[in-house]
Design a protein around this nucleic acid. Structure first.
Length: 219
DNA sequence: CCATTGATCGTCT
DNA sequence: GACGATCAATGGT
């Protein structure tokens, strides 16, 4: 169960993989270009695809909010490899969140996929996320997006740009500059001032902005 | 609409 | 042993 064996293409072979050159370049530019791209995931239950509306950039070893900040560990190892691979991590004891590894090989950057619109497999997405009251909520937020797509930690390392992969990043409709907005990252304590959250202006699938909500420790 | 809080565990110190 | 790149339920305005 939970494997990626049974393939059943949704968007189909007409769509082309995202450009690895773009992902391998400067991570902020890569994040901006990911808006409008489509992440498509096969499972035995079917295929779900999401068009990205919101992302966050985590920029290499110098970014104190990045999982790579304190160097290579078992969890973040894939970030240190080439661009275009999937990094899925577990947070708050119950949620998965997914990233696209970006930047040059050896420079551990990643782009967190924060939100998107379900463009294929909505019935399966709704079965996975029964709490969603509307279609726009199915992938509004990073853990919801990962849950809608059925992504978990063992999916880390998938080559998103291989057409034969069950988890594929596809070139979608590029968002024009006039609709691209940037601001502070969500829920991040370190480097809270850098405007590395990028989203599509006015898109209802974009998550509600929350400044970091770290709990106060009991006195 | 907004603010608050409990849930829950892998990962790193 | 502490802490999250969060969500959903709850209760107030």
């Amino acid at each position: 169960m939970g494997g990626r064996e049974g393939t059943d293409r949704g968007v189909g072979p007409l769509s082309r993989p995202f450009d690895r050159e773009i992902l391998s370049g400067p991570v902020l530019a890569a994040g901006r270009e990911l808006l409008g791209a489509v992440l498509e995931v096969d499972s035995p239950q079917g295929t779900v695809a999401v068009a990205l509306s919101e992302v966050e950039v985590y920029a290499g070893l110098a970014d104190p909010a990045s999982h790579a900040y304190r160097g290579r560990t078992g969890r973040n190892a894939v970030m240190f490899g080439p661009a275009g691979f999937l990094y899925v991590y577990f947070v708050y004891g119950m949620h998965w969140c997914c990233n696209v590894v970006c930047g040059p090989d050896g420079e551990p950057s990643a782009v967190l996929l924060r939100a998107g619109r379900v463009v294929a497999g909505e019935e399966l997405a709704r079965a996975r996320r029964p709490a969603a009251r509307t279609a726009t909520e199915l992938a509004r937020g990073p853990a919801r997006l990962a849950g809608t797509l059925g992504l978990v930690g063992t999916d880390t390392g998938a080559d998103l740009l291989d057409p034969a992969s069950p988890i594929r990043l596809l070139a979608g409709t590029r968002i024009p500059d006039a609709k691209v907005r940037r601001g502070p990252r969500v829920g991040v304590a370190a480097a809270a001032e850098v405007p590395w959250r990028i989203w599509v202006d006015g898109d209802p699938t974009v998550s509600a902005y929350r400044a970091n909500t770290r709990r106060r420790v009991a006195t």
